[in-house]
Simulated assay, not measured.
Amino acid sequence: MLTKADDFPIHQTPEPIAFAGTDRNFYDRYFFNGYTRDGEVFFAAALGVYPHLNIMDASFCVVHDGVQHNIHASRCLHMERLDTHVGPIAIEVVEPLKSLRVKVSENEHGISADLTFHRRAIALKEPRFTYRNGPRTVMDVTRLTQNGTWEGWVEIGGTRIEVSRDAFVGTRDRSWGVRPIGAADPQGLLPAAAPQFYWLWAPLNFDDRITLYHLNDDAHGDAWNTNAVMCGLADGQDEAQPEEMAKCRSEIEFVSGSRHARAARLFFTRRGGGDIRIDLTPKWQFYMLGLGYGHPEWGHGQNKGELAVGFERFKLSDIKSYAPPHLHIQAFVTAEMTLPDGETRSGAGILEQLVVGPHAPSGFKDILDPAK
């Protein structure tokens, strides 16, 4: 089957673009977040394409006055990947690697938006994520991440929030490859093993630079994928290049009785020498189920038919559990950076956390035992 994408020079296999050329868990995904520097307003969006399931889904979320509003949508892809809209939610690439637009048209749930992302720094390619469980590839993913500013507006229940580039910053990413999507495999893997996944992701915005840190640890606390980058801002045609760190690590203090961070510290060692420390203070938590991550009804790639749209809202203060579906979070954080010469920078960002199973450095021994 030929589709619109076949007129663009983007093929990776001899097949038409409608056929991904890999296993049924192939996906292609957009993610965005945006926030005021004080964290008073936060929004997030995602759109995923699952070629072998013939499904596209999307979500848009707003956190305002302590309430998280989530709108979800899913539709049949009809094998046409360039039509990046699902129900009221649409993504438009305005200028590749520089500017993208997120729109939520008026709908019965009273949440709408028209937002444009503009880069602050160049897009950064993270190291390829390849994660196996015995003979099975669980993840094989490439991702680009980019920090930027936002302009436009969001409307919630008749209240309009103006979004300006001087007040709103954030992060977007694009990831594609293989990861678990849709219905679970009915046949488990032998020998059975308890789930284990330790994930931190911290894109941060400072006035004169951005930083990006991530970590995947195994149960012993050994990193199987980690990286840290610092990058100056992109000014017109002047594109500051990223500085890859020689070493990086993190320290997390967990809230007692949970698996969510009370405080965090990032440590970077520059390749030319000199250490950087970034202290993170979580202020509140955005629940990733709003974007479909671990959602019991709106999980990624679920078959909802030709078109389905759903909505939910909840007070952040009402969420007392750290167990799924509330385990996977992005905590809005303030950040204090100390450079090798003692100079400091203040910033803000998010600390994404998903901690499942044992992790020796944290004292976790079971699937969801809490911090002491």
Rank of each mutant, 00 (worst) to 15 (best):
M1W: 11
L2G: 12
T3N: 10
K4A: 15
P9E: 01
I10V: 15
Q12P: 05
P14V: 02
I17S: 02
A20Y: 05
G21P: 02
T22F: 08
Y27Q: 06
D28H: 08
Y30T: 14
F31P: 01
F32M: 09
G34C: 02
E40M: 11
V41K: 12
L47T: 07
L47A: 10
G48I: 06
G48P: 03
L53Y: 11
D57K: 00
D65I: 08
H72V: 03
S74Y: 00
L77F: 06
L82E: 13
T84W: 01
G87S: 04
G87P: 04
I89N: 03
V94N: 10
E95L: 09
P96W: 05
P96V: 04
L97A: 13
V104T: 02
S105T: 12
R120Y: 05
E126S: 15
R128T: 15
T130S: 09
N133Y: 15
V138T: 09
D140S: 05
D140F: 02
V141R: 01
L144V: 13
T145R: 10
Q146Y: 03
G148D: 01
T149E: 03
W150P: 00
E151T: 01
T159P: 09
E162V: 07
R165F: 00
R165E: 02
D173P: 04
R174Y: 08
R174A: 03
R174H: 13
V178P: 01
A194V: 11
Q196I: 04
Q196A: 11
L204M: 07
T211I: 00
T211E: 03
A219S: 14
A219D: 11
H220G: 15
G221C: 12
G221K: 13
A223P: 04
A223C: 08
N225F: 01
V229H: 03
D235R: 15
A240L: 07
Q241G: 13
E243G: 06
E251T: 14
F254H: 13
H260Y: 12
L266V: 04
F268I: 08
G272R: 02
G274S: 15
R277Y: 15
W284L: 07
Y287D: 07
P296I: 05
E297L: 10
S317C: 13
I319L: 12
S321N: 14
I329V: 12
Q330I: 15
F332L: 08
F332N: 02
A335V: 02
E336S: 14
M337E: 01
M337P: 01
T338Y: 14
T338E: 12
D341T: 04
D341F: 04
D341R: 14
E343G: 14
S346Y: 14
A348C: 14
A348H: 12
L351S: 00
E352Q: 06
V355N: 12
G357Y: 06
P358Q: 04
H359S: 06
K365Y: 08
D366P: 07
A371I: 05
